[in-house]
C-alpha cells in the first residue's frame, strides 16, 4: 500500500516536471533568461573550444613533423602565412627527411642522455599521400571550434595542395565561410583555391571581389593583417582583370594598392605586369 503510494507520487512528480518543461517556455516566451551560445558544446566549453581547436591543429602540425613537437623549423604545413615556398631549394616538392638535429645532450646528465637516445631528436615532413594522416586532426579542429578560421584554411591547403583533393578543399572553405561570413581570410583562400587549383578565373574573381568589403574598414585605421590581405586581393583582381583584357580595372586595382601598401611585393609585381 505504502509502496504503491510512493510510486504514484513519483509518477505524478515526473509528469509535473515534464508538463512544466513544456508549458513554461510557451507561457513566458520572451521573458525567460537568455543564454548565449548556439549549441550545447558551446554552452559547456565556451572559449575553451577555441583552445581545443588550436591544440588539435598543433597536433596536426606535430604529425607533419613526424610526431615531433616544439620543432624549431621554419617550415609549417600551412599556406596561410610563411608557407613552404616553392622556390626554396632546401624544401622541394619531393619528400626529404630533414635532419634538423637538436643540440647534443650532455653526457653528464644521464637521464637527459637516455631521453636523447629514446626519443626522436630529428624531424621530417609529411608530403603527398602521407598528408592524409593530418586530416583527422584538422577535421577535429574544425568541428571543435567552427569559429577557428585558421583550421579551415589549413585544412583546405592540406586537401588541395598536399593530398590533391581541391574540391574537398573548396567544400571545406565554403563551410568555413558559412560559419564565419565576416572572415576575409577564408574568402581570400576560396579565391586562391578556385584560381590556382581549379583554374576557374571567373569564380575566383567573384570571391576576390567579396574580400574587399571585409578588408576595408568602415571607420578608423585598418589592421596589419587586413592591410596585407587587401593588397594581395588587389593584386589578384588586377591580374585577373588584365587576363580578360580589362586594363582600366587593372589600373584601378594598382592605384588602390599603391595607397594601401605601396612597398609590398604584390604592388611591384602588379605594376610590372601592367607594364608588359
Amino acid at each position: 500500500m505504502r509502496q504503491r503510494f510512493w510510486i504514484i507520487m513519483g509518477l505524478l512528480a515526473a509528469g509535473g516536471a515534464v508538463a512544466l518543461g513544456l508549458c513554461l517556455p510557451r507561457f513566458f516566451e520572451g521573458s525567460m533568461p537568455q543564454v548565449p551560445g548556439e549549441d550545447v558544446l558551446h554552452l559547456v566549453l565556451g572559449d575553451a573550444r577555441q583552445e581545443l581547436s588550436m591544440a588539435l591543429l598543433a597536433k596536426a602540425d606535430e604529425y607533419f613533423h613526424g610526431g615531433v613537437n616544439d620543432v624549431a623549423c621554419g617550415h609549417g604545413m600551412t599556406s596561410v602565412e610563411g608557407a613552404v615556398p616553392d622556390h626554396d631549394p632546401a624544401h622541394g616538392e619531393s619528400c626529404p627527411e630533414h635532419a634538423h638535429a637538436h643540440e647534443a645532450v650532455r653526457w653528464r646528465d644521464p637521464w637527459a642522455w637516455i631521453n636523447g637516445r629514446v626519443h626522436v631528436q630529428e624531424h621530417r615532413h609529411l608530403c603527398n599521400d602521407q598528408a592524409t594522416e593530418l586530416l583527422p586532426w584538422i577535421w577535429a579542429a574544425c568541428r571543435a571550434s567552427p569559429q577557428n578560421a585558421q583550421a579551415y584554411q589549413t585544412g583546405a591547403y592540406v586537401l588541395a595542395r598536399m593530398t590533391g583533393h581541391p574540391e574537398q578543399g573548396v567544400r571545406l572553405l565554403e563551410e568555413g565561410h558559412r560559419r564565419n561570413p565576416e572572415d576575409a581570410g577564408i574568402v581570400f583562400s576560396l579565391g586562391e583555391m578556385w584560381l590556382t587549383h581549379l583554374h576557374d578565373a571567373a569564380r575566383a574573381e567573384s570571391w576576390f571581389a567579396a574580400v574587399l568589403p571585409l578588408c576595408r574598414p568602415a571607420e578608423g585605421a585598418v589592421g596589419e593583417n587586413d592591410r596585407l590581405l587587401w593588397v594581395r586581393t588587389l593584386f589578384y583582381l588586377g591580374y585577373l582583370a588584365k587576363q580578360r583584357g580589362d586594363l582600366a580595372r587593372a589600373r584601378a586595382c594598382l592605384a588602390e594598392a599603391e595607397t594601401v601598401f605601396p612597398e609590398h611585393a604584390s604592388v611591384k609585381d602588379l605594376r610590372r605586369l601592367l607594364q608588359q
Binding site: Y63, D129, T132, E133, L135, P136, T163, Q168, R171
Partner: peptide, 13 residues
C-alpha cells in the same frame, strides 16, 4: 571506420 572529408588512408590517428 572514420574517413575525414570522405578521404580514406589515415591510420596513424
Amino acid at each position: 571506420f572514420f574517413s575525414p572529408f570522405g578521404i580514406s588512408g589515415a591510420g596513424r590517428y
